Amino acid sequence: MRTVRFHEHGGPEVLQVDEVPAPEPAEGEILIDVDAIGVTLPVVRLTRGRPGVPLPHIPGGDIVGRVTRIGRGVTGRQVGERVAGLAFSGAYAETVAVPATMMTTVPDEVDDLAALALTRSGQVALGALRAGGFGKGDSVLVTSAAGGVGHLAVQLAVALGAERVTAAVGDTPKAGFAREQGAHHVVTYDQDDWGEPVDVVLDGVGGQVQDAALRSLAPLGRLVTFNAAGGTIDTNELRMRGLSVIGFAMAHLAARRHDTYERHQQELWQLYRDGRLRPAVHEASPLDRAADAHRLIEARANRGKIVLLPR
C-alpha cells in the first residue's frame, strides 16, 4: 500500500511517499480502507522531532473509511461499516489498523469530509468548551478562529447559546471567514484592544497570543488551552483575578472518558443534522501532496480543515 512517512526530522520536505506492506489488525483493532485523512498542527509539528517517536514514522491523524477486517476481541463492528475517528500513528496511508474503541459509526447523512472534521476538530472544540465550564449565556473568545478546530468552536459556542463570541485571527483576510462562522466580534492578534472581557477563552495558539487571551478574561474566567505551543503563566495573576487555566487533550477524553467522548460525538452529529454546524474544508489534496498540506498548516494559511485523499 502507499503511505507517507518521514525517515528524518525536519519540515514538510522530509515527508515522502513509500510503498509498505498493509498492516494486520492486532487484538482489539480493526482494519480500515481510508477515504480521507485530516491534517492537524500537532502532527505537523511532530515531523520536527519529539522524543520517543521511532523513525521512519507514519503520522497519525483523524480518518474516515470503511472496515475491511476485524481483529480478535472486537465486538460491535462489522465489515463494510463506515467509521471515523483517531489513529495516533499510521494515518497517512491507504489502509490503517486502529483500536476499535477510537472509531465511531458515521451516519449515512454525514459526508466523508464533514465526518472527518467532526470526529477530531469538532470533538476538540466541544470538549474544550465543556472543559472550560461553558454555559448558556457565557461570553467566549476563540483564538485561531479560522482554523480546523477554531471555526467549529465559534459555531458551537453560538449554537449552544453564548451571549457573545469573539474570534481572534492572525490577519485581516481571515476576519470575514470568522464572521461567516457566526462570530459577533473579530479581532486580529496585533490589536491592542480585544474588546470586552469574556468568561471563557479557547486558545489554540499559545505564546504571546495566549498572554493576550488571558488578559481578556473577566474575573473568575477560564482559559482552556488545546494547542501544543505552550507558554508561561504567572500563577499569582490567576489568584488575584480568580482565573483558571485548563489543559485539554482529546486523547485523554477518548481513552479515559469514552462515554463522554461518544456522547459528544452524538451531539455533534445532531447539530450537523440540524444545520447548526457547518464544517469548512480549506483544501482536499491527494496523499502525495502531504508536504504541501503541512506547509499550509505551518503558515497558518488555512481557513477550515485540511484534508488528504489517499485514493
Rank of each mutant, 00 (worst) to 15 (best):
A114R: 11
G28D: 08
Q266A: 15
G52R: 12
P173M: 05
G161P: 01
E109Q: 10
R263K: 14
R222D: 05
D203C: 05
V224N: 12
T104W: 12
I32S: 09
T3M: 14
T188L: 09
V34H: 11
P279A: 00
A125T: 00
D62Q: 12
A280L: 03
D33A: 15
H185S: 09
Q210T: 02
S121N: 12
A162Y: 03
E237K: 15
H57P: 11
E298S: 05
L41N: 13
V44S: 06
A290I: 03
D259M: 11
M102W: 15
T232C: 13
L238W: 08
G122V: 07
R72I: 00
G61L: 07
D138E: 10
V34F: 13
L152Y: 00
D259C: 09
G148F: 02
Y92T: 09
P197R: 07
D171W: 10
S285T: 10
Q155V: 00
Q78S: 12
D108E: 12
I70K: 12
A168K: 11
Q16F: 03
P23K: 04
A178F: 01
V198W: 03
A87M: 06
V110H: 06
Q155G: 00
A301D: 03
R239D: 12
T172D: 02
N302I: 02
G161C: 02
A157K: 01
F88V: 07
P25T: 08
G147C: 06
V14S: 12
G247S: 09
P310M: 04
A22Q: 09
L113T: 02
A26I: 12
A218M: 05
E24C: 09
E8A: 14
H7C: 11
R69F: 02
Q266R: 15
S139A: 12
G76E: 01
R257L: 11
R48L: 08
A91T: 07
E27W: 07
V149R: 00
G304W: 00
H282E: 03
G85K: 04
L46W: 06
D35S: 15
P12T: 04
V96M: 13
R222V: 11
R77M: 07
W194Y: 06
T225S: 11
V158D: 05
A117E: 00
P23S: 03
A249E: 15
A145F: 01
Q208L: 14
D288V: 04
P173V: 04
P310S: 03
E237L: 14
P42V: 07
L253H: 13
L46G: 10
H184G: 05
V20F: 04
P54K: 05
G304F: 01
R82Y: 05
G137S: 09
V165H: 08
A36H: 10
R239L: 15
L86R: 13
P56Y: 10
A229S: 14
A128C: 05
V165P: 09
A162P: 04
A91L: 09
A100S: 12
V79Y: 01
V209W: 04
T143W: 06
G207F: 08
H185D: 13
E109V: 07
